[in-house]
């Protein structure tokens, strides 16, 4: 299994564990009478599962197992693959911090603005990661 695929899958597994821990805490919140602000984590929880786990698992296994692009470059451009890994995870971590950060900023406009710009940056990083993956993978989807 290529190194890039191992990174995608192992990191994906970590996201799965963190997301399910988060989900468990969210379910416990009304039972244990904890702060309702915990439910603000819902979009983060959903995206840790769908992007952190599902998408990265697909990317890791796809990078490993999709048909070869060519003899010279069987898996396409490996640098782009690493760029996708870094962009996707940076974007995901930034959004995981900024999204609840904005909601919990209250009346502190400076803090709110900082988180807002980080969130905008996260959105661009995730978009580039997704589009780069498609660009790097498209040519490999073919009849052998």
């Amino acid at each position: 299994m290529p190194a890039l695929s191992r990174y995608f899958i192992k990191i994906g597994l970590l996201y799965l564990v963190v997301a399910l821990l988060m989900g468990t805490i969210m379910r416990l919140q009304p039972i244990m009478n904890w702060s309702g602000q915990i439910q603000l984590l819902r979009p983060v929880y959903l995206h840790l599962i769908f992007i952190g786990w599902v998408t990265q698992l697909i990317m890791g296994v796809g990078y490993w197992m999709f048909p070869k692009l060519s003899r010279e470059k069987p898996r396409g451009n490996e640098r782009i693959g690493w760029a996708v890994l870094i962009l996707l995870n940076t974007g995901l971590i930034l959004r995981s911090i900024s999204e609840p950060g904005i909601l919990m900023s209250g009346t502190d406009t400076t803090r709110r603005t900082s988180f807002a710009w980080l969130l905008a940056l996260a959105s661009m990083l995730l978009l580039f990661a997704g589009w780069l993956f498609i660009f790097n993978t498209w040519g490999r989807i073919k009849e052998r």
């Binding site: 959004r95 900024s98 999204e99 904005i102 988180f115 807002a116 710009w117 980080l118 969130l119 905008a120 996260a122 959105s123 661009m124 995730l126 978009l127 997704g130 589009w131 993956f133 498609i134 993978t137 498209w138 989807i141």
Partner: peptide, 21 residues
């Protein structure tokens, strides 16, 4: 599915950006 991924990521990116800016 890859085409949908591209479109879906684009929509998601717009929504996320809008949440901040």
């Amino acid at each position: 599915s890859l085409v949908y991924m591209g479109i879906g990521f684009f929509f998601g990116s717009l929504i996320l950006h809008h949440k901040g800016i």
